[in-house]
């Protein structure tokens, strides 16, 4: 994954190739896993049905079948669509996901880029997807798409703020913006002098965690915040006119982003790649870390998808009210409380 792990000097091109492959794996593996485990199986079991069972043992190859199906489908561009914008939109959405994974640490030395302003960068690039969604909504030249795109823009902007504010509490407590350092801070932390499990910030920043979870639920446009794609109102919102490969890209983007955001939540609140019992500096983490992180990603995604399959959706104005009237003030109070406690202790 990273150069330091291999302990050999590589040429720039091979390092880049390795990183691209690593990035693809880090994006697609969780995305595919989430689709299979949660969308295909958990949702089906919750709805008293079996889900896909034919392709492969227990339907495990269904994902490949789906991808094959989408690839075969005709890539239709509506006659009156803004062609370039329409065709570019899914890539813009996907780029945001790839940029996000850049700063996610998988182990003490396993990362793509070790930015000192990592979490700041992540919050910033996560907004890029808004542009892609707006492009999709506008470029489709369909009224449903337009409504969906505008709803999405309003929603994503509204929920950026509580998300950033929820993260601030963690940043204050850790004293750093570097995501790997945040993991170290949690691993080396202690709770009232006892350092059995380090100090995962979910214990001290539970308010921030709750806010962050609500905010990413909205950022991911998952129910109860799925108005941009509300299938019973807007058919499929900004996705209405997409088919074939481009729809697949949106679909991958949705689940990959769910995975990455869960990863960020895991890093910020659950101690990232760290497991209690093994010193965080141990080299084994460069292999074990990604697996641990993957487990935590699935844990948090499980929550996201559980809510998704259970709740009805809000109305657009109720969603805005929730963000501006409740989440943001609570987040601000949380920051104040964190700052005060930080000074006191």
């Amino acid at each position: 994954m990273s150069t330091s792990l291999l302990a050999v000097e590589l040429a720039y091109w091979s390092e880049t190739t390795l990183r691209v492959i690593g990035g693809l794996v880090a994006i697609l593996l969780p995305a595919g896993g989430l689709v299979y485990v949660y969308l295909f199986k958990m949702m089906s079991f919750m709805q008293s049905r079996l889900g896909p069972m034919e392709a492969g043992p227990y339907g495990s190859m269904q994902l490949l079948a789906e991808v094959g199906k989408w690839l075969q489908k005709e890539d239709i561009v509506p006659a009156k669509a803004d062609r370039q914008v329409f065709m570019l939109a899914p890539f813009v959405v996907l780029i945001s996901t790839f940029l996000l994974i850049l700063v996610l640490p998988f182990g003490p030395d396993a990362w793509f880029v070790d930015l000192d302003t990592g979490i700041y960068f992540a919050m910033a690039v996560s907004s890029v997807s808004v542009i892609g969604i707006l492009m999709a909504g506008w470029g489709s030249s369909s009224k449903y798409s337009l409504l969906g795109g505008i709803r999405a823009a309003g929603q994503l902007i509204a929920y950026e703020l509580p998300m950033v504010l929820a993260v601030l509490g963690v940043v204050i407590q850790a004293g750093t913006l570097n995501m790997n350092e945040i993991v170290f801070a949690q691993a080396n932390g202690e709770i009232f002098g006892i350092d059995l499990i380090g100090n995962p910030y979910i214990l001290t920043q539970f308010v921030g965690f709750a806010l962050f979870m609500v905010a990413i639920q909205a950022e991911l446009t998952q129910p109860p915040f799925d108005m941009p794609v509300a299938e019973s109102e807007l058919v499929a919102g900004y996705l209405t006119e997409y088919s074939g490969l481009r729809f697949l890209l949106f679909f991958i983007g949705e689940f990959a982003t769910a995975g990455v955001f869960s990863g960020i939540a895991a890093v910020l609140f659950l101690g990232g790649w760290y497991v209690p019992g093994l010193a965080p500096e141990h080299d084994l983490y460069n292999v074990l870390g990604p697996l641990v992180l993957m487990g935590k990603i699935f844990l948090i995604s499980g929550l996201i998808f559980w809510f998704r399959f259970t709740y009805p959706r809000f109305r657009e104005d109720q969603l805005q009210r929730l963000a501006w009237k409740y989440l943001i003030p609570i987040a601000l109070l949380n920051i104040v409380a964190t700052g005060v406690l930080k000074v006191v202790f």
Binding site: M43, M46, Q47, S48, R49, P223, P224, D226, A230, S232, F309, T310, Y311, P312, R313
Partner: peptide, 16 residues
């Protein structure tokens, strides 16, 4: 009605 409001699960129970 639940399905129209975005909760996908209850309608399956209703059908069952």
């Amino acid at each position: 009605m639940a399905a129209q409001l975005g909760a996908v699960t209850p309608v399956f129970y209703a059908f069952r």
